[in-house]
């Protein structure tokens, strides 16, 4: 997914000379082809995220479209004030590409986890937040980024993630996609959890439960209409995300339903990480499993909720 995303930036740069690439001391060889073809529009800067964001803001003020890339936890937390003021208050078309969204860097520990990125960036006016599910969707999504008017945060997954989408699947920023029909419950999910939701739905089918899956690649602006219609159609809404239970997609859904949902609304099950630092290393899958966020556990939680256990 990461490779698809960065290659897409190169493709966009070929089409549009406003496109720039800014990195913060990325891995050796990153986008070499871009650097060789457009050395004036490729900037590999130091380990200085605050300056990187301010610099991107200055470039965007002058008509350029900077794509800024580094590790998600540093790109969001270290320079949150620069993102808030320089990008969001000025409402500039800078694209932030966060490597290692969620738990991609599982072996590297809490400094490298990004389980709060949706919460931090969702609170900022003008910011859009997206988390495509796989490389195919990422390519489709990146084509839409050129003309997006304001700042945009793109959460990247590990790469080699299971592909959920087929080529040519229509995509619009801010519009959820139905991946599966159902009637007993609906998953509202984002990023790589789309795949887990589909697997959980398969498991539940075998138990006689028919669950729909909606993929919200865009966490903000939220597809309000899709959330509200799902809430009116299903007795159980399950939000599923690789994020803290504070401030992410589940929170966004709850906020919307509290403000605009009918009462009494559906039952809601929020599946996310607890408000605690992750204490383990290992693999992304192992940490997801420990948090009850792999297909079997997800299916069990949904079944318990539906059967009132």
């Amino acid at each position: 997914m990461r490779k698809s995303c960065l290659n897409s930036v190169f493709e966009l740069a070929k089409q549009d000379n406003r496109v720039l690439f800014l990195g913060s001391d990325l891995g050796a060889g990153t986008l070499n082809d871009f650097r060789e073809r457009y050395p004036d529009r490729f900037f590999m800067e130091g380990v200085a995220e605050q300056n990187l964001i301010g610099m991107a803001a200055g470039l965007a003020m002058e008509g350029f479209i900077p794509y800024v890339n580094t590790i998600a936890s540093f790109l969001t937390r270290r320079c949150l004030e620069q993102i808030t003021i320089d990008l969001c208050l000025h409402n500039l078309p800078v694209r932030l590409i966060g490597n290692g969204g969620g738990l991609v860097y599982a072996p590297l520990g809490p400094t490298h986890f990004a389980l709060d990125d949706f919460a931090l960036l969702r609170a900022l006016p003008n910011m859009a937040v997206v988390a495509p599910s796989d490389a195919v969707q990422m390519r489709a999504f990146m084509k839409k980024t050129l003309e997006w008017p304001g700042p945009l945060y793109i959460r990247l997954a590990k790469g080699g993630d299971p592909v959920v989408f087929s080529e040519g699947f229509p995509l619009e920023i801010g519009k959820a996609i139905s991946l599966r029909e159902g009637r007993h419950a609906v998953f509202i999910t984002t990023g790589i959890m789309a795949h887990r939701a589909l697997s959980a739905a398969e498991i539940l089918t075998k138990k006689g439960l028919d669950c729909a899956v909606l993929h919200f690649h865009t966490v903000k602006p939220l597809d309000d209409a899709r959330v509200l219609s799902a809430a009116s159609e299903f007795p159980l809404v399950v939000t599923l995300e690789e994020h803290s239970r504070i401030g992410g997609l589940g929170s966004a859904v709850l906020e919307l339903l509290a403000d605009r949902g009918s009462h009494p609304g559906p039952r809601i099950l929020r599946l996310a990480f607890p408000d605690a630092f992750v204490k383990n290393y290992g693999s992304q899958d192992a940490i997801l499993e420990a948090a009850g966020l792999q297909p079997e556990s997800i299916a069990n939680s949904v079944m318990n909720s539906l059967l009132g256990a």
């Binding site: 610099m55 200055g58 470039l59 008509g63 004030e81």
Partner: peptide
């Protein structure tokens, strides 16, 4: 914040 934005603007002037 200002100097970083100024760096971006000065760089943009060079690019243009």
């Amino acid at each position: 914040h200002g100097l970083s934005i100024g760096v971006g603007q000065a760089l943009a002037a060079k690019l243009k």
